[in-house]
Design a protein around this nucleic acid. Sequence first.
DNA 1: GTCTATAGGGGGATAGAC
DNA 2: GTCTATCCCCCTATAGAC
Lengths: 194, 194
Amino acid sequence: MSKASARSAILDATKRLLWERGFEATSPRDVLDASGAGQGSLYHHFPGKLALGVAALEEIAAEEVAAMDAIFDPALPPLKRVRAYLERKRDPLKGCRLARMANEAAIEQPEFRRPIAAYLERIETHLRTSLEEAGAGGELKAGADPAVLAAALLAIVEGGFVLARAHWDGERMVRAVDGGLALLDGFTAAETSR
Amino acid sequence: MSKASARSAILDATKRLLWERGFEATSPRDVLDASGAGQGSLYHHFPGKLALGVAALEEIAAEEVAAMDAIFDPALPPLKRVRAYLERKRDPLKGCRLARMANEAAIEQPEFRRPIAAYLERIETHLRTSLEEAGAGGELKAGADPAVLAAALLAIVEGGFVLARAHWDGERMVRAVDGGLALLDGFTAAETSR
DNA sequence: GTCTATAGGGGGATAGAC
DNA sequence: GTCTATCCCCCTATAGAC
């Protein structure tokens, strides 16, 4: 790993600090201290703090999108995929690696929010298409709108992180997600999965 | 209003800036510039930035709790109260005045999160008791758990703010809340409100 | 209770040697 | 491509006159 070089050390440190502290609270100095790189290396590879943050977010998004693609395994029955997403193991107090940044001032910069939005969009699409597939298979009740249910389930998870952090109690997220599972059950036609 | 004095000018400016930018992004200097007060006034009335933020959050929480208490008017049928909460007019891109702070480092301080948690708890309690009342009146389907549904509905609203800001598109929140309304309909026994 | 002046430290960024 | 040294500005807080 000697040729991992300063660039990747800087990116790795940034990815870690973004999750722990967010963007504004992470200074270039913090990144350098955490990575062991020198002052000039950062500004050689990135034009500034914003670009560094964007590059780190893009790597984080790539990792998390891959994890989501694995969870929404097309080999599984569609409603099992949705349940797998809701029941995924999470650390509520750490917040969502990407959506955690939604309230930073930098979110107004399109390049900053692009990887975050892409990640959320991917989940919502997986949820919607899974629900559509379930509906086509007669597993959903009539009147269930996959697009609207997908948006609500995603909001429950992201809102669950917020509630957990606001109360500093991971159980708050668990309860919200349980509500999401109940929501799913409520729209599931009698027979199927579970 | 001449005796409104520096203290309330400082608090008002802080309340405004907390909503616009959050806590870390708001400096004591910003507050002084926005309020017209002098440097010393801030530190005469508050021991430091954290205490100022807490005092401002307590006022914001008091205002928002009052607004919630008005929405959950006991004179209304219980399910109408829940719908009124979900359908409340909001500015999705501005975020929740209180829960917006959930990802700031200061949230780890108990006094900082107390007003935020109290506000969220109040909403959740209103939702739960309204749903319990609806259940007692036979308006909810069997198996609907008011506590879990309340947590999910609150998470949908708070998560909706996050989705809207991440996409910089208020429609994202509208869709999530529509899912909340569908969730409610799904657990409503055939005849009732709407 | 309010003000102006100021301090010490860290923020983001640049210069330029190696 | 990497490093050390340095810059200017703003951050939070204190001093002390009025």
